[in-house]
């Protein structure tokens, strides 16, 4: 059984998986019990499975766990700040009551978090570009946009923290 080493949500982990071609999504969910990352399509169309790989948003449903050996992975469970307070995006998602069913929202928030890292003050077009890979079947797109704008303001007011 091959072992894979990764830094997961800031902690170094050794993961035992029978089959190195198993997508990261299923290792997170079935092996590690981190079920915040969701399965929606398995073909990189819906974005429900979005996590960060070395800070960049990726679709974990198609990425074999062997490909993340030695890398840094961040999931929704590790997004909150170190002091336990919510990431500005998580707070904005609550403030704007974004979710309907909520199933897509972990993926949405992870895509948005990567965007704000790159671009702390995105305009609508830039948001649409960064969020293009995330479906919301319930149609909460307008609230997602509003919450990202609000989180950007929150982050700039808090200074360097999120």
């Amino acid at each position: 059984m091959p072992d894979f080493h990764l830094t997961l949500n800031g902690k170094s982990r050794i993961i035992k998986v029978d089959d190195g071609s198993t997508p990261l999504l299923w290792v997170l969910r079935d092996t590690l019990g981190l079920v915040g990352t969701k399965y929606g399509c398995g073909i990189a169309q819906c974005g429900a499975c979005t996590v960060h790989l070395n800070g960049a948003p990726i679709r974990s449903c198609l990425l074999p766990v062997s490909a993340v050996d030695g890398e840094e992975v961040l999931t929704i469970e590790g997004l909150a700040n170190k002091d336990g307070t919510l990431h500005a995006l998580q707070q904005a998602w609550i403030d704007f009551d974004v979710a309907q069913c909520g199933y897509c929202q972990a993926g949405q928030i992870m895509s948005a978090a990567a965007l704000l890292e790159q671009n702390p003050n995105p305009n609508d077009m830039e948001i649409e570009g960064a969020m293009a890979g995330n479906y919301c079947r319930c149609g909460t797109y307008n609230r997602i946009k509003a919450a990202i704008h609000a989180a950007a303001v929150m982050i700039s007011q808090r200074g360097s923290g999120k």
Partner: peptide, 13 residues
């Protein structure tokens, strides 16, 4: 406007 009761659990996965 009241935010949904499950929202905290949702945004923390």
């Amino acid at each position: 406007r009241i935010s949904g009761v499950d929202n905290y659990a949702l945004v923390t996965g």
